[in-house]
Design a protein around this nucleic acid. Structure first.
Lengths: 352, 352
DNA sequence: CTGAAAGCGCTTACAG
DNA sequence: CTGAAAGCGCTTACAG
């Protein structure tokens, strides 16, 4: 109820009211154990009465740390990024850190935006296929602690991944076990990207089964590209009996367009995706896909970043979080069972 | 390539190298027109050579503004909030402002988190059913400019809405026109909330058609609640022929559960939702729903906030953005046409 | 346990 | 057009 003063109270006002120095106020508010209990109470009381709120900028300048984490994500709306953000924010907030977010547009040059971010936070997480190029991340890492998540790792930079290659291999293997022999991968396997790793797993399984390399539709992981792929498929009489898609968005689009044109899923062609989106469990047949611990990925990135800021040594081995196969009808699975864990893999192991 | 110095260059270093005062560096970098072209070039050159990046904290402290916008959203992952964030961030970034986000958990007390946010930014947007109570928003508004979006308006605080009542009335009217007479609303109509307004529109239509008040399932807008409603419905033989749901999440869950139990949509019961989620266009029948300009809502909130920070007068009349009916199969519509604009409404008009 | 004082790195009247 | 200097509101050695 500080209705008497229009200007926000400063530490000086609190000090004056409590009858101590600003140094003592600062210490008391920081919970320093070197402050006498009585003094602390007096300070807290004064602060409360004045509705005191320490200016973040002054605190950051004097303390040489912003108590803020930067998060760089692509310019894309969607549940995946929302999950990532939620995980990141909750973890940061638990650590008493605020999060400053900057969205990087794959097209536009994000350099100045990311540099500005670096000037305002203590460390930055570059998550998913964000627009930031390797060179930019490297540049920034010379200035602030940096971590990356779900994108190609960088030398000397802590990296987090979600398991891709092995689940993709298992998923593909599963299709083969179900009798599929003409498989294709749908998606652009960018080097080091999640989809790139999934494509590798796809090929691993084909190789192990002595099947031909398998076709590939080199498209962006977007709905429209999925429709396009389906159209191309329809023109050629759908020469495949299984489609491993880079993500659910593609898989869903392909599947719908195919079904709308009389192709039966999974009888004529099995289709699997990746991400376990909401839609995957509402379509018919349900889309077999892979669930990723995206929220946890965000949380771990934030936590690691905080450690680095506190002086932790960078360059830890990359950490890979386990993904989970979710069997539903679209793979032609004889025994559709929800959520079977494909592997126990948790750390280093594999991630390229 | 400032490999010579490990510490980041300060404005003093730039001033020294350019042979000018720090005042001139500051002005030159700010693009002040009062700096001679030659001087400016020299400063820019020096800054570039030293890879100078102004410390945000110092700038904020000296300039008395953080150049940052705060965004408070619920603790919920999902496309809706991702869209909101994207709109907000893009607008802020265009204005040269960074965005600090804090997620408020409906349960936990968000007061201290929001206060901390207020200490770090120039203004705050409280969006959607965020955990922040009216009292907290009011408290903060005494300290910083504040706007709200998609939540109950507050006296004296600029508010933004997405059109709810009128589209809900039209949607309900549409069901009635198609011969439905036993309608129910699914969702908890919290006062001032979006769903609350939708419920009003629902009743408007019933009243206009001289139909009975209509039943209501007072549940949270979550998938599980949708399943529960469906189960209750099934127990009583589904005594309705049309269900107007508070959002797609509910509508989708209800519809799926009903279909899984042999109820035909829309023959036995028509179902409509709200949000135009991805899933709505992938299920069969397609879910008739309402598309909201969520991204634009976020952008407008950011822009208005920036105006207020620059001294704009608060208390403008609430602004309501138009929503769009998206007719698909679930409403039993005889002529399923995508995206017909229900009304031209753009401003004040109606929003409670 | 506490205070005086320096300093964090900028911006901005105020003079010139 | 430019500079000297004060000041933004904190924190933190350094003394005591």
């Amino acid at each position: 109820m500080a209705e008497d003063s229009h200007k926000a109270a400063t530490i000086y006002a609190v000090a004056a009211r409590a009858g101590v120095s600003t140094a003592t106020v600062s210490r008391a508010l920081a919970g320093s154990p070197k402050v006498a209990a009585r003094t602390r109470d007096a300070v807290l009381e004064a602060a409360r009465e004045l509705d005191y709120l320490p200016a973040a900028a002054a605190r950051a300048l004097a303390g040489n740390r912003a108590n803020a984490l930067g998060l760089v994500m692509p310019h894309i709306a969607g549940a995946y990024y929302a999950e990532l953000l939620v995980g990141f924010e909750i973890a940061a907030s638990r650590l008493g850190l605020s999060v400053v977010i900057t969205l990087a547009n794959p097209r536009s040059d994000s350099r100045s935006a990311v540099r500005d971010l670096a000037a305002a936070v203590d460390g930055i997480a570059f998550m998913a296929r964000s627009a930031a190029k390797d060179s930019l991340i490297t540049e920034i890492s010379g200035r602030r602690p940096v971590v990356t998540g779900a994108r190609a790792a960088l030398e000397g930079t802590d990296a987090f991944f979600v398991e891709n290659r092995e689940p993709a291999r298992l998923l593909t293997q599963h299709l083969i076990d179900n009798g599929r022999t003409r498989l294709a991968f749908v998606g652009h396997p960018e080097r080091g990207s999640d989809i790139g790793s999934r494509c590798k797993g796809f090929h691993d399984a084909l190789a192990a089964a002595d099947l031909e390399p398998g076709a590939r539709f080199d498209v962006s992981p977007l709905e429209q590209d999925g429709f396009d792929v389906a159209d191309r498929l329809l023109e050629t009489g759908v020469p495949f009996d299984a489609l491993v898609c880079g993500n659910d968005e593609l898989a869903l689009a392909v599947m719908q367009r195919l079904q709308d044109n009389g192709v039966s899923v999974p009888d004529d062609v099995a289709i699997v995706g990746w991400d376990d989106t909401v839609t995957a469990r509402y379509v018919r047949p349900g889309l077999t896909t892979v669930a990723q611990p995206v929220r946890r990925l965000g949380a771990m990135a934030a936590e690691r970043l905080a450690q680095l800021i506190d002086g932790g040594e960078p360059g830890t081995a990359p950490i890979t979080l386990p993904s989970t196969l979710v069997h539903r009808g679209s793979c032609g699975c004889s025994t559709p069972s929800e959520r079977s864990t494909p592997s126990e893999c948790t750390t280093p192991k594999e991630f390229s």
